[in-house]
């Protein structure tokens, strides 16, 4: 069985032109697989490049070398070389991402923020909203907040909106960047439970969790990112 997500020899540097072109190597030879129904956690200290790897896998960062292989529509696709239009299609149908911070849009309600990934895939708006409500309720977001834009929410409230938005679809690959960082114990437990359900449903998850307790509960495997530290400093 092929992996849901295969990272092959990925490397990444930043060239800081504003600082006299200094080249900052981030990672190299990143190489691991994530299988369906598995949660792989990226481990290592801050600055090791965990978030950068997630952002490359989502297409947010460009890559300097290597491949990010996904199965989309029955065919294997290298996201590292995909054109923007294909990346957008992949994001719509195959790969979802719960970022650390919610990027809010003025005037769009929390409910619509959560329902949007379903709506753009053609799900009926009222049905998408019903499913969004169920998720927000499960994450204990007070109902009075649902119709408000999340810009003024607390960090924990925004995080729960973000999680609901990421979990509402049945994307085959789900990326999680510190989804429980600003949550209390109750809601952390809810997220752990939701991750378990995703695994059971066959979703491949790749995440970063600093909370050791949570990491222990969700991780099937930990990939140590320090192994990908660049050997040659430029």
């Amino acid at each position: 069985m092929t992996a849901a997500l295969s990272i092959r020899n990925l490397s990444k540097t930043f060239t800081m032109h504003l600082r006299d072109g200094v080249v900052l190597p981030v990672v190299e030879n990143v190489d691991f697989d994530v299988h369906a129904g598995e949660c792989v956690v990226l481990g290592g200290p801050s600055g090791a490049g965990k978030s950068s790897i997630l952002k490359m896998v989502y297409g947010n960062y460009g890559v300097d070398g290597g491949a990010i292989l996904l199965v989309h529509d029955g065919a294997e696709i290298d996201l590292a070389t995909a054109d923007p239009r294909l990346v957008l299609t992949l994001r719509r149908d195959t790969i979802a991402y719960v970022s650390q911070f919610l990027r809010t849009v003025p005037r769009v309600s929390a409910l619509d923020v959560v329902a949007e990934p379903l709506v753009i895939r053609g799900v009926d708006k009222s049905e998408a909203q019903e499913r969004a409500k169920a998720l927000l309720a499960r994450l204990n977001l007070p109902e009075r907040l649902w119709s408000l834009p999340p810009a003024t929410f607390s960090g924990g409230e925004q995080q729960r909106v973000n999680i609901a938005r990421g979990f509402i679809t049945d994307h085959k690959v789900l990326l999680l960047d510190e989804p429980t960082a600003s949550l209390d114990a109750t809601n952390r437990a809810v997220v752990v439970e939701m991750i378990a359900q995703k695994k059971a449903a066959g979703t491949a998850l790749l995440g970063i969790f600093h909370d050791e307790d949570v990491r222990h509960q969700v991780a099937d495997r930990i990939v140590d990112v320090t192994a990908f530290a660049p050997r040659i400093a430029a």
């Binding site: 930043f14 032109h17 504003l18 952002k55 297409g59 947010n60 460009g62 990346v87």
Partner: peptide, 21 residues
Amino acid sequence: AGLTDRVLDDPREPYTQLLVS
């Protein structure tokens, strides 16, 4: 040129980096 969030989050060209910063 490219995907909007990629150009903004990971700008390559000196001028784009200047714009974003």
